[in-house]
Each structure stands twice: as C-alpha cells, then as structure tokens.
Amino acid sequence: MFDVEVEKLTKCFGDFCAVDALTFNVEHGEIFGLLGPNGAGKSTLIRMLTTLVPPTSGTGRIFGFDIVHDANKVRQSIGVIPQAMTSDLDLTAEENMSIFAKLYSIPRDKRRRTIRELLKAVDLEQWADKPVKMFSGGMRRRLEIARGLVHEPKIFFLDEPTTGLDPVSRVAVWEMLSRLKRERDLTILVTTHYMDEADKLCDRIAIVDHGKLVALDSPLKLKASIPGKNILEVSFSEIPPGWENVLKALPEVAEVKGEDHVFRISSNNGPRTTTELLESARAAGVTVTSLSVQSTTLDDVFVHYTGHQLRDALQAPPASSSPFMLPHR
C-alpha cells in the first residue's frame, strides 16, 4: 500500500477543470514535489487530498482511507500547511500550537511536552511566549510547520511553503523539512514553483500543467530523460542561410531550437560541441555575440515537457463567488 494513492482525480469548476484525471502514488518516506506554474491545479489537488474540496470524480486515498468517505480518518492522520499563513497574530507561538493541539484532542500532559519539542525543532523555542505579530515571515512559516505536526501525523501536506519568503528563510524552511522528515519518519507532499528547491529536496517530482500530469520521476531521471546533457545558449551577429542545419550537424548535438538570433542547443557533450561551434562560426565569418553552456536543469525539463516556460495561467474560481462582485469579461 502506498501512503497516498490518487486515481483519475478530477476537479472541475463549470467547464474549467483545475485538476484533470490525475493518477499517481506517493511512497512512504519520500518527499514528493508537485511542480507547476500558478494555476496549474496544484493547490486544488492538495485541497482535495486534505478533504477541503470535494472531488468531481476519481478517488484519493491516504493510508487507505478514502478522502470523501473516511474524511475524518484522513484529517486525523495528516498534517496540513495551507498556502495562506493562518496563525493568529494576537496569540503567542505557544498559544497558537496549544489551540490546535486541543482541536486534535491531545491530552494535557502530552500537549505541553509535544509543543515544547516541536518549537525546539523549528528553532522557535526562545520565542514561545512572544505574540506572532512580532515574527518575520520565515519564523511564522516555521511556527505553522510545527503547528501542523502537533498531532504527530505521518504524512505532511505543504502548499507552497516558501512562497513570499526571502532566500535565507527559504533555505531554512527546506532544511527544517528535510530534518523533520528524517527524524519523524514523515512522508511529505509539497507544492512549489521554485525549480531549484524541487531539484535539491524532492525524491520524486510530478510536473503538473493545466491540471494534467506531464512527467513524474526523480529529478535526476527527469533531467536525464530529455535529450542532451548540456544546454548551449548562443547568439550570433548574423544568421547565414541554412545556419540551423549547420548547427544540427555539429558533433554530439541532440536538438536545436532557434528563435531570432538566439539558438538553444542540447548537446550530449557540451565542451566538444562548443569547440566545433566556434570553429564553424569563424569559418562562416559569423561573430558569436554571446555563449553560455550549462548542465540541464529542471527548468529545461519543464520547458521540454510543457512546451513553455513557467508562466501565469488563470486561477480556479473561488468556491462560491460573491453576489457583490461583477463577473469579469
């Protein structure tokens, strides 16, 4: 049995399907990343799995419990960090934790101990009795991570936990998540649109676009799955006729994509292709105006599978629109 089993899970708002027949499984103990642009359906998927939004069709199971029929058992066994920061600014860190411990009916003696342990685990021990309004964004996010673990769940859902944080806080949050996962034997399902984070921290990544699953594997395998090991981005002062064919004929070249004066060349051997490219250019009397060689990144994987860069898309409409708002045309 997998910790999370998702089968043809679909959520439509009218004609628009935010999540379109997604199928995947999450194994125990892995950090599973859902990667996709804003509006790809990541949040809707997480909300379905955490019982906040009922699916239109398909099934989802957490530890074998159905997300619709055994919703309360699902809620008892998961920890959830929603995208919006939901800790109370007027309450102290400890009070915030304590209220949630009570909502999970944790007995009093255990409550105090668990809260202290968790605040220590997220490095907020010395701020336990300070009101949350004095916290920075990163501290607040760490507190919410601790709050999500107060009932010791075995699976943890985080919806864009690092969005809006500065780079230092982002690193701190991710390091904390890796450590918590190790120490507490957690399975983590996390959404993000930061490629670099997903690459470094996730065991497996599902790339989601327009509500559909476009690729699913470990970051290494995903990068290996696209042609070439290096990407050359090169621009020229002028483009002689048939130049793209010349580039394709260079040794070790897997793929060439051109746009105006800039070419994106996937190569299995970056240094060799680069040397030959410069020689061909000199022979043809073409000046190279810029050249960069880099290893394949998840960005390249994303571009390869979706055909576009990470970009904005329409968000799913809210569950019920206000009668006081006019519809947008």
């Binding site: 929603p82 920061m85 939901t86 949630f100």
Partner: peptide
C-alpha cells in the same frame, strides 16, 4: 477570508 477557517477544517473537528 484570511484562510483561518481552513486551519480548522483540516482538523477532525
């Protein structure tokens, strides 16, 4: 609107 209720709704209350 601030999402505070979302926090309640994911618990078994």
């Amino acid at each position: 609107a601030r999402g505070l209720h979302e926090g309640y709704l994911v618990t078994p209350i």
